[in-house]
Amino acid sequence: MILPLGFALGAGVLVGVSRSLNGRLSLATSPLTASLWNHVVGFAFLSAVAVIFGGLLPDGWPDAPLTAWAGGAVGVLFVASGSWLVARIGATMTALLVIAGQMISGVALDLAMGRAEGLWIKAAGVTLILSGMWLAQRRR
């Protein structure tokens, strides 16, 4: 149980590390250029992993919905915006607001796809997040 726990925590830490590294790179280039490097380096590394461990192309992968092809482009904009933000408002404020946006849009997506389980608990969560955002932007 300790190992997966460390993995899950570590994954979160690495999200922050990645954003700081890209933010530092964007200071010398541009946020979009930093995002390009992020994707090229990640692709090279994952290709190497795939060559070593094999089994990259799963059967039936072309059956994925068309929107799957848009994920990469959305990710480019996400990384670029994070690089721009972390250099301006800092790591904590960026993380805090991105998490808020992710959670609230996630609830909206769930609703749009007709998943309404635990709706009242989600509404309470959204209220807490909105109050946190209000607190964060005061006197800035």
């Binding site: 994920g71 915006s81 721009w84 607001l97 946006g101």
Partner: peptide, 21 residues
């Protein structure tokens, strides 16, 4: 920047949805 960061979280949700496909 505040609004952009919030919108960026929305992009993250979309990205996870699409990549998950």
């Amino acid at each position: 920047p505040f609004a952009l960061a919030f919108a960026s979280g929305g992009l993250l949700s979309l990205m996870i949805l699409f990549n998950g496909q």
